[in-house]
Design a protein around this nucleic acid. Sequence first.
DNA 1: TTGAAAGCGCTAACAA
DNA 2: TTGTTAGCGCTTTCAA
Lengths: 332, 332
Amino acid sequence: MRKRPTINDVAAASGVSRGTVSRVLNGQGNVSLSAEMAVRRAVAETGYVVNRAARSLKTSRTGSIVMVLSEPQERLFEDPNFSVLMRVATNQLAERDMSLVLMIAGDDDGRERVARYLRGGHTDGALLVSAHAGDPLLEDIERAGVPAVACGAVLGRESVVPYAAADDRGGARAMTEYLVGQGRRRIGMITGPLDTPGGSLRLEGFTSVLGRKATKKMVVHGDYTQVGGEQAMRRLLEGVPDLDAVFVASDLMAAGALQVLHAAGRRVPEDVAVGGFDDSAIASATRPMLTTVRQPLAQVAEETVRLLTALLDEQAVEPIVLPTELIVRDSA
Amino acid sequence: MRKRPTINDVAAASGVSRGTVSRVLNGQGNVSLSAEMAVRRAVAETGYVVNRAARSLKTSRTGSIVMVLSEPQERLFEDPNFSVLMRVATNQLAERDMSLVLMIAGDDDGRERVARYLRGGHTDGALLVSAHAGDPLLEDIERAGVPAVACGAVLGRESVVPYAAADDRGGARAMTEYLVGQGRRRIGMITGPLDTPGGSLRLEGFTSVLGRKATKKMVVHGDYTQVGGEQAMRRLLEGVPDLDAVFVASDLMAAGALQVLHAAGRRVPEDVAVGGFDDSAIASATRPMLTTVRQPLAQVAEETVRLLTALLDEQAVEPIVLPTELIVRDSA
DNA sequence: TTGAAAGCGCTAACAA
DNA sequence: TTGTTAGCGCTTTCAA
């Protein structure tokens, strides 16, 4: 394999200086049309591709964004946000000729690596996925001075880390109101972990509708896994045997809840109505199919990336919350 | 924010030359203990982190691997391999202080970007996910001379691109034999796309057991989506009304098949046994829960990354195929 | 509008 | 074992 051509080769082939080639490549203007054409032809001829390392060394920008997953690793697979975000981010950044680096900050080791990466100036910005309240990584990021945005609010840091998110509170409210409207009177809830926005905000939506009816024993906490949903459902049935509806903060947990209800001989939706959240693939795989709340995942992802690119361009940004949609199927 | 310290700062702080600092940092030996200690202390004091761009410019290695997803984007989310692979790859590479860049080559644009990226020498190696037979990207990779491995065989290129994969053929055979052993006589199959290893190899396993019983009308092709599974199941029921079992090449498609069977009034497993493949989360969310074939995803991912790092170290590598496991639940 | 030249931070070859 | 030094390929300032 021949050596890769450098800017010098292009300069030689086009008969102008390196400086002019660079100006053409970076679209800075102040270049004569003839020079520009000559350079472009030479680039095509030589198959020149810029050496990012060299450029980066000079400009101290890297042309890459790091996507940091703070999720404990098991949960990662089950986060519907995640793969959509990744796809959208990859594509949007590619359009700017930037690349996406992936890092997992699931444990202390991982966090330390991410912190070192940020401190090392290896990236132009950070895209946070499911960062938790009080995540020490946030300080690392701040200290490193790297522009960062989050997909989903970072609880307690809403005003510090710009974010795009689905309207968790509103979606939960809509589902709860729907259940009430269906004549349900004893409505329980299975939440997600309360240190995640999906955990606490969906609970807020629920209680904002039910008021004092949302007593302690009507609400149990799950961990977004199916097994967690099963356990939570069992606890709920034990504590509230006359339950006639349950709002579950994720479809996967709802799938677990359905299994338990079935095993307990409760018919869904006749005896107990079940509402999910996410409208993930699993929602139409369960029996009965889940009535659930659809999140505009692709939009959230797009807005998240837009916020980050705006930040890179040194524009001011505001958090953005996008509306959800109630999807009525068979379970409620 | 202060300027980031360079190797010069470390040299000054430790009272040795840049060269010695570099030797310590790269663990090349030929350094006195006292010098090494001084350097390490200075690194800690100054908070020095190597500038990868500069290093890369000099060594022409980048310290990064690109993970290329050739999957049409919709399918991506539904590939259970994918998130596991990503997690494992991120972690294993991090241990070598390498980072993982993600690129999607779903369309021509994407492919061209990936090709440019490879040609530009922006990466030390490529990790291919679900590359298709005849994928033009393969040529780009070869031409760019970038070491590459695949997760899952690249059909038609098995001897060119090293890979790690689950034993699709064996898993399919095990499931088919199990169905036969249960006394099923009219066994149909819903395959994946035949240009994917999971599509063609699972079909091979199926036919290798059933021989001439695996007639054309007993086999229909799906696309790994749930809706695709539903359509395929409908076609199969139409063509073979007396079907008493169906082996479906993915759990997600099997979930679709279950819905259709239920709607058609067939009891599972009494009237029709259903076998899936993957043992993904969805397999225990369906009703009845799916009897399926578990792939050792984490192992496959680990072996894939191991192959790549071996290749980077210029060791010889062989493809590796890992055994699957039959998971018996309720659907068959 | 263009060319010349400095230098980003690092590694490795060479000399001591 | 150590220090010195020559670039890696690029951008950008300065002068022309």
